[in-house]
Every structure is written in C-alpha cells, then in structure tokens.
Design a protein around this nucleic acid. Sequence first.
RNA 1: GCGGCCAUAGCUCAGCUGGAUAGAGCAUCGGUCUACGGAACCGAGGGCCGGGGGUUCGAAUCCCUCUGGCCGCACCA
Length: 598
Amino acid sequence: MRPFSARETVREILAKAVGELVAEGVVGAVAPEAISVERAKRAEHGDFASNIALALAKPAGKAPRVVAEAIVARLPRGGSSPIVEASVAGPGFINVRLAPVFWQETLAEILAAGDDWGRAPTRTAPKILLEYLSANPTGPMHVAHGRHAAVGDALARLLRFAGYPVTSEFYVNDAGNQVHMLAQSVWARYMETARAADPAVPTVPFPENGYKGDYVRDFGRTLFARDGARWVGAAPPSDIEPIRSFAIAESLGIIRATLERFDVAFDVWQSERALHEAGDVAETLAALDAKGFIDRHDDAVWLKTTALWGDDKDRVVVKSDGLPTYLLADIAYHRKKLARGFDELCDIWGADHHGHIARMQAALKAFGEDPARLRVILIQIVSLLRDGKPVAMGKREGEFVTLDEVVSEVGRDATRYFYLMRRHDTPLEFDLELAKRQSLDNPVYYVQYGHARCAAIRRRAVEMDAPQRPPLSPELAAELALPEELAILRRLAEFPDFVADAAAAREPHRLTTYVADLAGEFQSYYTQLQKVHDDTILPQERHRTGDWQATWDWRKTAARLYWIDAIAQVMRNALGLLGVSAPESMPRPPTTTKEDDS
RNA sequence: GCGGCCAUAGCUCAGCUGGAUAGAGCAUCGGUCUACGGAACCGAGGGCCGGGGGUUCGAAUCCCUCUGGCCGCACCA
C-alpha cells in the first residue's frame, strides 16, 4: 500500500537504503521514523532533502559525504520507483526529486479521498482531553475568549483529523467567589427592579467588586419577571443559592448561544460544583494528606508546595472559612481527568495563568503521575484595532467588547481566521477594519476568493457546454506538465504532512499559512498562465473563431479542471479545520471607476 | 526580588522542532494590461534574526549572559 503522503513515501525508500547499509555494518541502526525528510526549500534542490547521512556519519566515524553517496547509490531510480533523481549536496545532504508522474498520480488520490484528503489513519493513543475556554459563567464572552474558542476548536478539529482520539471539554467554574459575586450583583439589580415596581422595597448597595455590565441588569429584570418579589426579603449571602443558580444558568445560556453562533461545540461540560458535590475535592485533599503534603495552621489548610516543588511559600487549599480554593479544586479536577483514562491533558489557558503550570504539574507528580501528561497551551492577549488605534477595554467597568459584537461586525469566518492567523503564544492585533474589508488585502477574503474562483471556473466550463470530460486517467493527468502546475500538485500532496506536523505541534495556526500560500500560488498561476504561457484554462472569446471546438485542446482543459477541483477540495479541507467556510462565490463590491476619483 | 513568555524588513507577522542564499502580506517605488472573476499578476529596494559568549560539520531555532517589553508571584479564579 502506498504511504499516505509523499514525504512518507520518500522516508520509506530512504529507510530501506539505510537498512541495507546497517546490515552491511557501514553505519549504526536507526529507526525509520527518525530519518528526517523535509521538503526542499529551493526548487533546484529537488522535492525533498534528508540530513540522515550527516546524522549517521559521526557515530560511524565516516565522512558524511561518503555515507550520503552510499545511500544515494542504493536509492532505486526510474522504473517503478517514484524517484527520478537523487544527489549529494553540500556537507552531505541527500536531495531527491520525484517523477512528475508521482505528483500527477496524487491528483486522483486527492479527488478520491475528497473531504478525507489529509486525514491520518486513526490511532488509539494518546487519548487526549482538550480542555479550553472554560470562561467563568459570569457573563458574555469577550474578545480574549474568542481567541481561546477559535484556537481550541481548530485544534480539536485538527487533532481529530490527524487521527488522535480527542474529547473536548468546557470546565464550568460554577463554584467559588466569582459566581458568588455574580449572584450578589444580580440580586442588587433585582432589588432595583423590584423597587421601581414598589417604592417600599429597601435600597441595597451594589457590591463593591460586583459585575457592572448591563447584562447583570437584564438578569435582575428577568429574575423579577419570573419570580416577582419573592427574593426581596432575602438578605445575601444566607439565601442566595437560588439566585446564584439562576445567574449561572443565564450566563451559560449566553455562552452557549455565542458558541453556537461561532460554530464551536464541546463534547463535555464539566461542572466544578459537581466535583465538590461528588466528593472528588475532599477525596483529593485526603489523598494529599495521606501522602504528607498537608499542613494545618492559622485556621487554614495548606499544601506544602515548598517541599513539593520548591515554591517560595506554601499555598492555601482550604480557607479559614472552610471553603476550598480553586487550586485544590483544580488538582482534583486534573486528577479526575487522568482517572477517566486520558493519556494527555491538553489545557488552553490565558498567558497570565502561566504561573499555575508548574503547580499543576507538581501536583500530578505528588500523585506519582508524569507531569508531562499535562500539556498547557498559553494564549496571549488580543488587542482590537480600529482605525489603527487600540480599542479601549476597561473590564472593571464592564466596558468590554464581546465576542458577539465582533462576530456581528466582521462575520464568523473573518473572526475565526484572524484569531488563528498568529501563533498562540504571541500577542494578537485584531484589525477590525481589515477583517471586514471585502478586498484582497484582507487575508481571509483573499483565501476565500481563491476557492470562489475555482468554483467560478467550473461553472463557466459547464455553461460553455464543453465536450464531456473524459475520466481521470494517468495519461490525462500527464497533461499537467507546467512547472507551476506540478508545484501546486506538490503542495496539495503535502497537505497530509502539514496536518500531521501541525497536530503534533498543537499549532492550528499553521493551516492559515498553508492555505494562504496555496491561494497565492494559485492566483499567481492563474494570471501567469495567460501572461507568460499565453494559455488559458477555458477557451476565450478570441479563441472562438472558425472550427475552434474541434481544434481546442479539450484534454488539457479537462485535466486542468480536475486539478482545479483538487485545489478547491484541499482549500475546503484546510478551511474546514479552521472552521472557516469555503464559499462558491464572493459578494461583488461596488465597482469604482477612475472617473470617481476626481 | 523570584519565575514565565517575547524580541526577525518601515509596519503586522511566518519560518514546518538544528540545515543549504532568512520568507510573506501591507506600505513605498517601478512594471504587465482588449482582462477565463484585473477584486489580478510581476519586479525592486529594504535584515548583524535585540547585544555578547557558547555547543557543532551547521544556530533565527539549543545553552549561558546582558538589554528592552509584556505577564505572573492572594485564605480571587
């Protein structure tokens, strides 16, 4: 069976050649997957390059070029081998060029695979629990949450596509101070509404650090509309529980609606309160205590973090009021996740939580677990730009821009694409003007336009009532002989490698780079075909004279139409992993003429 | 003070886990042009990859150190 990517094909052939040398005792053994194969950066180097000779030479006490020559001598060329050319370059690189036929054959594979082109075979391990977003249920999501949602969801899609078993999970922080404060804020707003209806209702002060957003007023009004004056007599905090539950449910409702609109779905919603109620938190405390990591003084319970991982001071896990801290709950949560049978806990956190990583990993160590099983992806801040200037966001006063507002303004596709354009650990500047611009300097528009253009060409081909397309055969695919056509075929063939690499690195943003490069390469080809090669995919007006239908090269057109189908397919697959749609056509902006400028 | 992240073209950023001559988009300047969707394309200029040291055949990438920026170091989450 043919390996699922070009790179793997080359790796396999190299491994065989190296294996022969190993058997002859020329070099030491090496695992096939340890043989590095990279796509060549320069066309004159061929398609792929390997530094395996450089790696093997030193331990064997041989000159790298000599080892490289020996490997190259064992690489089959021509005939049934996909390799047409192999050479030694520089200090000992092995450059390999594959036959055009090899790339042409991938065309049929891509079209046959369709939506599955790039999908890796399913694996059983590692089982990954991807926990992300986990926004406090205290109000609407803002722009920073949006980046978490976009990255997390794209990563989930990417990992699944790359064959990993993944469960996505939203951890609901429905216990602790934040939701308590929300409940008090809602109650205060509720009292305002109640007083408006009945002046006899007493005035209550709004909590000092309460949630001041307008949505809290809405919650208060909704509560009053539902329950009337029932909670007027309630004096927080003794009887606040029903109000807290109400506020959490309302917040989660808002969050779920936003996520649905943003096309983000979670497999599991895990409640923190449920962990407390099930006794997981208490049990974790007892387990830590049994291992001697717990200290009690000053009315509080302490985790001996100084002893555990050289922290500068011990940390409180149960406050003097008897309530557990988030640290203890989080330890219990992660312990529980491992107990649920996951091999890797992949968490996406805000960069301001980085200090927490070492603590959580050490906590895993306390239970005898490998700390590396917790893999944390830190997301840097997002700043919105309008007219080139940052949009002020004072979270304290509740004046933040919500994710809903951004999506409403620039659309879901642009929002997701922009969030995914940058590596997650670098701060992101989100240019609202650029994101909603319907022109090709907008990266997401440019990429989508590339797909729409493919679709337009197909539509035109149908309208033109060309002869029926012959089935795709190797002979037909051989019509794709231009260097640009082969280069794009190569890029399409590499898509599975990009998917595998991006998934292994947990870096979905690489797909934006890939799809933007592909779109750019296609646009360039499209224009250059006519300018440089004086050729077109479909016959133009000027071609349609005389007996043009008999003389036009319909075979080449047919091959190129299959090829364009494949380009559109790969664009769809890549955009699908990003959660961005691939439109069949783009809205036409108003055309401006030169006369309008004066 | 301790710890983490970052520093690449004028601007915004890639750079595929150590490879060959560091790339793209904007912006600037110049060009193509009866045009399949020109809403396009091509080219040029622009870089001591923050500074210094080290590891090695080879470093933007790994280690040390300095500088500058962001962020953590609660009986908040």
